[in-house]
Design a protein around this nucleic acid. Structure first.
Length: 1108
RNA sequence: AGAUCCGUAGCUCAGCCUGGUUAGAGCACUACACUGAUAAUGUAGGGGUCAGCAGUUCAAAUCUGCUCGGGUCUACCA
């Protein structure tokens, strides 16, 4: 233990942090913070794994600060919080990075470079920036276990994923199907949504669009149309921007509640009379108003205005299942019941005709609704992007110019021409819209049916929605809004990715697809490997027979051939699984469950998480996959509380991106301002879920304001505590034996502890931090310390002084504990500085201590109220002094305060001494209404009055405002008053108005709310003397300080005082001497030596000599 | 295009859920004061069509609808 508190010359946060980091490492502070809670209730936290193939940015600092502070807080609350770090290592971004680095494309893999080599490169590259990440983790003070992280490419991790996949498989949740995915014929590959969202992929293109005419078939369910049309032909109109999909059309989708009309008119190309069906609200797009009910017989070719007439109208659902003739009958689907009108919820009347041409092969919506109605599927375009051989005259033609053919003819145009000729086109025009393009080839993407494996999440949709309601979402609207909607509209989870670096799907199939096996562990696979070799013989799986499989990645798993129950060879389904499966499975995969740690997960010790936090962009990513797997595998939520933090924008509100070059480098910010100030700024500036405009100036402000103030307060304490040898060795002085102001700050401190605890418990660190800021600045520094300064440097080391030290010490001790979760370095530094001397805590670090508990008995609302009164009154008096230009150093006789009730007077009386010394007046006079000369003002209380008066409110308010002094007096006397409004009598109560003492005629007054203060500004000669004495004290103190004297040095003083000061020096000689620690103070006639000073515009010399 | 969040002083944010009549704070700016915490502090001042429009209401920054601007997610769909 040290006997002196360390004093400092300057606050250097970055240096403090370096020192503390060293100590943490030396003493294994993090490990110990977990150890000290051995046996305590676990608080389960999951670290969302970052991908280390990109550099960390400032936005990573905010989510990690959030995670860290919750974990530190819960540790201080007595929970054991294990934090296993992790790395997300698979996936497309890794692969794209490697391809870029090697200068290859996907097609080159397996040709120019072996899959084994490629994957080895990925494995190395993915942890490229691990060192940088580790450095950030350390420097920002994020406590997470980096020594034993989970890594998603580890065999043990993948084995857990396989267990999960097999479990889902056994439950019947894993199936193979066709899905419509973005596909680039030019590149010959499917595209991920990430690739589709790369900048520049969406381009404006001009396409030929067609409103095609689908001829309805006459039948019982369509008879109402034909009745209206006089048994003429009836056509459905459907618009498409991709006419090349028309040969694959299998359905027409309408909106169930949309109103449609049957219209009699002419085809503008063939001039034949037709009857067409479309949505009513879209008619103006196709029909001119003046054509309505025009003369049909008079119409002739070339007329600008085409006559039309509505024959009947009906709802979309009336059209359901009406059949129509195939538009371009080149080929028919092998199965299904096509060419029907169906109902879908995605139909809008924004554009087109309100009837959607539906080709299940080329649109996700189309496919979904097609499946629902069993339309079948017809794919007349091959993977090169050209029509198949069975599309008549269009066979073999590319649907878009994928080969850069200079003679390419737009097939859409030819289809439009054909339809025009056949009286099957109602309108053909160019249309400009945005369309996605392949980022690598710049060619249009098309949506194409590809084989894929799915997880049937829709089977547990209701359960997922139900369990989601038990999750504590911060902010709540993310859970009900964004996430809730997402669940409501959920589709099955497409697991398949045709890539190389990822978790392989552990499914082996016979060639005909009739038999398959889903493998759930390494052991099972090795058994199957040997079995296949025995049954199939030869070289099958030869290289895997001895040691079994060593790496669960491609290409090794693809070498393995298994055998089906009927003895047929089975090969692995070539897909990898979506990386989101990797991260969604981390709760159990990080534990290598169920092969290890089975009890921890099954016994709900390590599952589900009590808390997770990530960026709001993870809502449909990690948050979703965690939830889906939690529900499907364990019928449980995966996390009880989730905080989604917003984005970090730059100072101008722009998203930070490498492209714009506005990324804030976290290392620089931390180096300059320190991690504590950075963390504090990030947490307190905006709620975590609001997007944050990051401005380094704000970090500087946090540094100056909060940390600077605390540091000053500490230094102040240390300076005097060292002089007095205060080490908290005396017994704790009971609160009731401490002065008012001590009990007040302890009361406020405990209120703060109460509030901060509630905020932290509610995952509102922003509110907690702001409350702490208010306390440190307004209450502790600018009121308590300022008012108590004299107590620390005046007088003997006895009861009052010890009380002050104990009080200030306790405030510092507890406030840094409240701050410790957010700003771990500075608080630990101060904790050590304090604790080294006092040894109050046996903990080696603030992070091993228990969070302060509220002492409710210390909270005194009355006390807090009257101190607020004292602050307000002081503030008013100071403003009055300013108004009449009288310095605070000049004592004044008294202030007058009108008193509303006895309680108020009692309250003020208790803090009268504080007020008097703060504003330098001799006394306080309380005025009650009996004095009679206070001018009062009355204001209606709208809230209570409004409820009673309703519409008469305005008149009542006017009447009250017009009250005379007599009216007010009457109301105060009787407690009620009857007034007449619009001829009606209404009674108002005292509680319906607010009466304040506004003015005391003849006095200088100031108001704040209901509080009024008047100041007596008469300066008597005696007051003048006292003021001058204080001026002199001030000047001599300055000389002492400038001369570098110690606080305790005694002095002799000679003053060549001018006449006007003499009486002050004589009358207040003792006072002055005590203040300046002088043994003698003499007035001399003239003085050559000494320092020139000025008081009230008079200059004279003062000589100060230190006694040896 | 849909969903959702955001828009209050030059800047960063409270207040909105639960409507109440002079809309607050900090920073920055200006002036004055204070000073044994001093790169701190106090007082005063300027600075706002609470994004816009409409509605509900005696009363709207606050509730409702629409519009505009910004962000995010989902989709790109006829």
């Amino acid at each position: 233990m040290s006997s002196k508190y360390q004093e400092y010359n300057q606050l250097n946060l970055p240096q403090i942090e370096k020192d503390i980091l060293q100590q943490w490492e030396l003493h294994q502070a993090f490990e110990k913070s977990v150890e000290v809670r051995d046996g305590a209730t676990p608080f389960v936290f999951y670290e969302g794994p970052p991908s280390a193939n990109g550099l960390p940015g400032i936005h990573h600092v905010i989510s990690r600060t959030l995670k860290d502070l919750v974990c530190r807080y819960k540790t201080m609350q007595g929970f054991q919080v294990k934090r296993k770090g992790g790395w997300d290592t698979h996936g497309l971004p890794v692969e794209l990075g490697v391809e870029k680095m090697l200068g290859i494309t996907k097609e080159d893999i397996g040709k120019k470079i072996s899959i084994a080599e490629y994957n080895d490169t990925c494995r190395k590259e993915v942890l490229k920036y691990k060192d940088k990440w580790d450095e950030l983790t350390q420097k920002m003070g994020y406590w997470v276990d980096l020594k034993d992280p989970y890594i998603t490419f580890d065999n043990s991790y993948i084995e857990s994923l396989w267990w999960a996949l097999q479990t889902l498989y056994k439950k019947g949740f894993l199936y193979k199907s066709v899905s419509i995915q973005p596909y680039s014929p030019a590149a010959g590959t499917g595209l991920s949504s990430a690739e589709l969202n790369m900048p520049g992929t969406y381009k404006d293109v001009k396409d030929t669009t067609v409103v095609a005419m689908f001829k309805a078939q006459q039948a019982a369910n369509s008879q109402f149309l034909f009745d209206a049309a006089g048994n003429d032909e009836v056509y459905f109109l459907a618009w498409t921007t991709t006419p090349w999909t028309l040969p694959s059309n299998l359905g027409l989708t309408v909106g169930g509640n949309i109103e449609y009309v049957l219209v009699k008119t002419f085809n503008q190309y063939t001039h034949l009379p037709v009857n067409v069906i479309m949505a009513k609200v879209l008619m103006p797009k196709y029909f001119k108003a003046e054509g309505e009910n025009a003369d049909f017989d008079a119409y002739k070719e070339g007329d600008k205005v085409i006559p039309w007439q509505i024959l009947t109208s009906f709802k979309g659902k009336d059209l359901e299942n009406i059949r129509y003739e195939q538009l371009l009958p080149f080929a028919q689907p092998e199965e299904g019941d096509p060419f029907r009108v169906i109902v879908g919820d995605f139909v809008t009347t924004e554009d087109g005709t309100g009837i959607v041409h539906t080709a299940p092969a080329f649109g996700a919506d189309d496919n979904r609704v097609g499946k629902k109605y069993g339309l079948g599927i017809l794919t007349l375009v091959d993977k090169q992007g050209k029509f198949t051989d069975n599309v008549g005259e269009f066979s073999g033609r590319y649907v878009k110019n994928y080969k850069d053919d200079p003679n390419y003819k737009d097939v859409d145009v030819d289809i439009a021409v054909k339809l025009k000729k056949e009286n099957r086109a109602f309108k053909v025009e160019k249309y400009e819209h945005t369309y996605p393009h392949c980022w690598r080839t710049d060619k249009p993407v098309l949506y194409y049916p590809l084989d894929a494996w799915f997880i049937k999440t829709t089977a547990v949709k209701d359960r997922m929605i139900e369990l989601n309601k038990t999750i504590n979402w911060k902010p709540a609207f993310t859970g009900t809004g964004r996430f809730g909607n997402w669940l409501e509209n959920m589709v099955d989870w497409n697991l398949s990715r045709s890539r190389y670096w990822g978790t392989p799907l552990p499914i082996w199939r016979t060639e005909d697809g009739t038999e398959e096996k889903c493998i759930g562990s390494i052991e099972e696979l090795n058994g199957e490997i040997r079995k296949a070799n025995e049954v199939l013989g030869g070289d099958v799986n030869k290289s895997y027979l001895h040691e079994g499989i060593l790496d669960l990645h491609k290409p090794y798993v693809d070498d393995i051939i298994l055998v089906s129950d009927s003895g047929k060879p089975m090969r692995r389904e070539p897909d990898l699984v979506d990386v989101w499966f990797d991260s969604g499975a981390m709760p159990f995969a990080q534990q290598h469950y169920p092969f290890e740690n089975k009890e921890a997960v099954d016994g709900r010790q390590a599952f589900p998480a009590d808390f997770i936090a990530e960026g709001v962009d993870q809502t449909r990513g990690w948050f979703y996959t965690l939830h889906a797997l939690g529900v499907m595998l364990f019928d449980s939520v995966a996390y009880k509380t989730v905080v989604s933090n917003g984005l970090v924008l730059d100072a101008n509100g722009m998203k930070m991106s490498k492209r714009l070059g506005n990324v804030v480098n976290p290392f620089e910010t931390i180096a300059q301002y320190g991690a504590d100030a950075t963390r504090w700024y990030l947490i307190t500036n905006a709620s975590p879920w609001d997007s944050l405009k990051f401005d380094v100036k704000g970090v500087g402000e946090a540094q100056r304001k909060l940390f600077g103030t605390l540091y000053n307060t500490y230094n102040f304490f240390a300076m005097y505590a060292n002089l007095d040898n205060f080490t908290f060795k005396e017994a704790y002085i009971p609160l009731e034996e401490r002065p008012e102001i001590d009990r007040w700050i302890i009361s406020v401190l405990n209120s703060l502890v109460k509030d901060a605890t509630a905020y932290f418990d509610d995952y509102e660190p922003t509110q907690a931090g702001r409350a702490v800021e208010r306390f440190v600045d307004e209450h502790l520094s600018n009121w308590y310390v300022r008012l108590c300064r004299r107590r620390f440097w005046k007088g003997d080391y006895e009861h009052d002084k010890i009380s002050a030290y104990q009080t200030l010490y306790e405030c510092l001790e507890k406030v840094i504990q409240l701050m410790a979760p957010v700003s771990p370095f500075f608080t630990d530094w101060m904790f050590n500085n304090l604790n080294k001397v006092t040894g109050r805590s046996s903990a080696a670090s603030i992070h091993h201590t228990n969070f302060p508990e509220v002492q409710s008995e210390a909270i005194d609302p009355d006390l807090e109220e009257r101190m607020q009164l004292a602050q307000d009154i002081s503030s008013l008096v100071l403003s009055l002094r300013k108004k009449v230009n009288i310095k605070v150093r000049q004592p004044l006789q008294k202030i007058l305060i009108p008193i509303a009730d006895a309680h108020m007077q009692e309250q003020i009386a208790k803090v009268a001494d504080l007020i008097k010394s703060e504003v330098n007046v001799k006394g306080i006079d309380y005025l009650t209404e009996t004095e009679g000369f206070i001018k009062k003002k009355i204001k209606p209380n709208f809230k209570s009055l409004g409820a009673k008066m309703g519409a008469r409110m305005k008149a009542v308010a006017a009447a009250i405002t017009a009250f005379t002094d007599a009216d007010i007096a009457a109301l105060e006397r009787d407690g009620h008053y009857t007034l007449t409004v619009d001829g009606e009598q209404v009674q108002i109560q005292l509680s319906d108005v607010e009466i304040i003492s506004e003015d005391i005629p003849g006095w200088t007054v100031a108001n704040k709310g209901a509080l009024t203060v008047a100041l007596d500004i008469t300066i008597t000669p005696q007051l003048q003397d006292e003021g001058n004495a204080r001026e002199l004290v001030n000047r001599i103190q300055k000389i002492r300080k400038d001369s570098g004297f110690e606080l305790t040095d005694r002095i002799d003083v000679k003053v060549a005082a001018v006449d006007s000061l003499k009486s002050a020096i004589i009358n207040y000689n003792d006072y002055i001497c005590t203040e300046i620690l002088a043994d003698s103070l003499d007035v001399v006639a003239a003085l050559q030596e000494g320092t020139e000073v000025e008081v009230n515009d008079l200059k004279f010399n003062v000589l100060v000599n230190k006694k040896s």
